[in-house]
């Protein structure tokens, strides 16, 4: 059965609530209204008292999650847009992220962040936050790109004893459809080869997996076979899978939707340069958004972020080096 990425997130939460009494959901408008994106549609009715509306207080929402997690619960916190999680940043990185290290007591929180750009959303409803959370110790950062991963990784996130930042991409919510898959699932922290190729490795995550796959199809028409690596989690980062891919292709293009300074793509390039330098036949290349706030106008936004077109252009230059 084919469902959307958003429905997968809703279904995963329904299953987590049904399977584990410790799970509850807390966030703005998540109750009777069902959430700004309807990711919690009908859950308040199906699980009375366990899907709780919060005031607009991201710091207090995440502080409450820390206390509830220490108190034996498994809170899922929905921040309405990832951008607003900056207000609760302190509780996540300084409280949740340090708690196990300091006290020996785990702090199992799932922080759901609707992230990434959509046309017309502008500077404060479009940001990609994975790099700043990944920078801090004590947090797991997931960036699912597929319907099946959105479902299964969210269930994984709730089960993990450590705080998880779950970066769900808004652009995929309604448009990406797929089934939940069956059989063996990849373990948390393992990357996936989304497309096999011999000429270069495009390493990416989240919505950019789909842009990279489109670019790879375009390149295939020109005789360039790109391998696409979907990181799935950016922390931990599956360095082995990345380096194995680069060993096969000899070329690395790392693509991210976040701002260009530092971040996931820089981390990937640093690791490949440090540990897989001998496999490289060309300098490693990165492609990110531009170093400005995310623009409002669709024409500006389309160029601000990497796209299938800009990824294909970068790949062409890389294979000629």
């Amino acid at each position: 059965m084919s469902i959307t990425y958003l429905e997968a997130i809703r279904e995963a939460q329904a299953r987590a609530l049904a399977e584990d009494d410790r799970v509850f959901i807390y966030g703005q408008d998540v109750g009777a209204f069902g959430g700004a994106f309807k990711a919690t549609k009908n859950l308040a009715r199906e699980f009375p008292g366990r899907v709780i509306d919060s005031p607009i207080s991201e710091d207090a929402m995440l502080g409450l999650a820390v206390g509830a997690a220490i108190g034996g619960m498994r809170p899922i916190i929905e921040v309405q847009f990832a951008d607003f999680s900056t207000v609760g940043f302190n509780q996540m990185v300084n409280q949740a992220g340090t708690h196990y290290w300091r006290t020996g007591m785990p702090c199992p929180i799932t922080l759901r962040l609707p992230c990434g750009g959509t046309s017309g959303s502008g500077p404060f409803h479009s940001q990609s936050m994975e790099a700043i959370y990944a920078h801090y110790p004590g947090l797991v950062v997931m960036t699912p790109a597929t319907v099946a991963d959105a479902y299964h990784m969210l269930l994984d996130a709730v089960k993990i004893d450590d705080p998880v930042v779950f970066c769900e991409h808004k652009l995929l919510y309604y448009h990406l459809k797929g089934d939940l898959g069956s059989g063996d699932r990849l373990a948390v922290g393992k990357a996936r080869i989304a497309r096999v190729g011999r000429d270069l490795s495009i390493v990416t995550y989240g919505a950019m997996v789909h842009e990279a796959t489109k670019a790879a199809e375009e390149l295939a028409g020109e005789g360039i076979e790109a391998e696409v690596v979907d990181l799935r989690t950016v922390k931990p980062l599956d360095t082995d899978c990345i380096i194995a891919s680069v060993a096969r292709t000899g070329r690395l293009l790392c693509v991210g939707e976040a701002y260009p300074w530092g971040g996931v793509t820089a981390e990937v390039v640093a690791r490949v340069a440090g540990e897989g330098f001998n496999f490289l036949d060309a300098p490693p290349m990165r492609l990110n958004a531009k170093d400005t706030p995310v623009p409002y106008h669709p024409d500006l936004w389309a160029v601000h972020r990497p796209s299938a077109r800009s990824i294909a252009d970068s790949a062409r230059r890389l294979v000629q080096m």
Binding site: F24, G49, R50, D59, A60, M61, L62, G63, L64, A65, V66, G67, A68, A69, I70, G71, G72, M73, P75, N90, Q91, N94, Q95, T98, H99, R102, T103, M105
Partner: peptide, 28 residues
Amino acid sequence: PRLGMYAMISHLGAMISVVSGGLLAHRL
């Protein structure tokens, strides 16, 4: 924390909502 006494962080005001979370857990 296992005995109900939290280990404070330095950021002031940050422990208040943590206590609230413990109380909400008790309620649930």
